[in-house]
Design a protein around this nucleic acid. Structure first.
Ligand code: FES
Ligand code: FES
Lengths: 135, 135
DNA sequence: TCTTAATAATACTATTTTAGTATTATTAAA
DNA sequence: TTTAATAATACTAAAATAGTATTATTAAGA
């Protein structure tokens, strides 16, 4: 079971690559594909999604490409995970539809997981693209 | 994205139910199904797996059923997650096959996730069936 | 204005995981 | 020897994941 999905991972790579460019330049998908060796079509879809969500600006036409909108320090790993994997849910009750005797209140398992989940979130929230750029 | 899969969840319910029985009795699948409202066939497969893995003993034939082998305090949530979901992997590199420039050593993302993952493990490891029985 | 180099949008497909069902065999008590 | 239980295995349906393919749109620049 993977915590990070493939598209989240690809997005991280691409964003780090873009953030490394001097002067927030427009970067072409082809460029990223060549340097980071990611699958082109799939990466396009990922970048499009990032653009729709406001992480990137896309510039069509000749000389076009994608450019960062938000600063690398403002893009958290958890934002990307949420974008591509949906909100990470440590505590979802899977019995709900079927017959959950105690939707959340009083459910010890969920209560414990919730506490742990909060601490996990706090830590994950500190990971940003900027914090990953030194590597 | 769910952290706990459905079969892990069902296993937890079933084990708590069994642990609550006085005297580590043999419990029949039908009984669990009725009380916990879990899908019978699917639950059977789950219990069989728990038996193969040494959590339960199965007694065939008339008067048979499943019984706990390990004490409720000795069954950790993480054991069950590992059994049904495979080891939770916070740090798998998904680029590996494709061209990972730095398998783990020097990869900041993995390094950070590894540290967080360890703390998460420590906390999850404290959740046992026994610790969930009061609810 | 026409060509061209770029992305956009959308639909399709293949694989894997998840969740469940069905069938047949085995066992042991009564 | 009947019967009430599980075992083992194979099958299936649905959802998530990881892509691919096709066609449309845009804007720079000769
Ligand atoms: S069983 Fe539903 S919240 Fe615990
Ligand atoms: S990219 Fe492979 S370990 Fe980081």
């Amino acid at each position: 079971m993977n915590f990070i999905s493939r598209d989240t991972d690809y997005a991280v790579r691409a964003l780090i690559y873009m953030a490394r460019q001097p002067k927030a330049e427009v970067v072409t998908v082809d460029d990223i594909v060549k340097k980071e060796r990611l699958p082109e079509r799939f990466l396009r879809r990922i970048l499009q999604k990032l653009a729709r969500k406001g992480f990137l600006a896309s510039n069509k036409g000749k000389g076009g490409g994608f450019s960062l909108v938000r600063s690398p320090g403002g893009i958290r790993l958890t934002d990307l995970m949420e974008t591509f994997q949906g909100k990470m849910n440590l505590t979802n009750c899977l019995l709900k539809g079927r017959i959950c005797p105690n939707v959340m209140r009083g459910c010890l398992l969920r209560k414990k997981l919730r506490a742990i989940g909060k601490e996990l979130d706090n830590k994950l929230n500190k990971i940003t693209i900027a914090s990953l750029m030194k590597g």
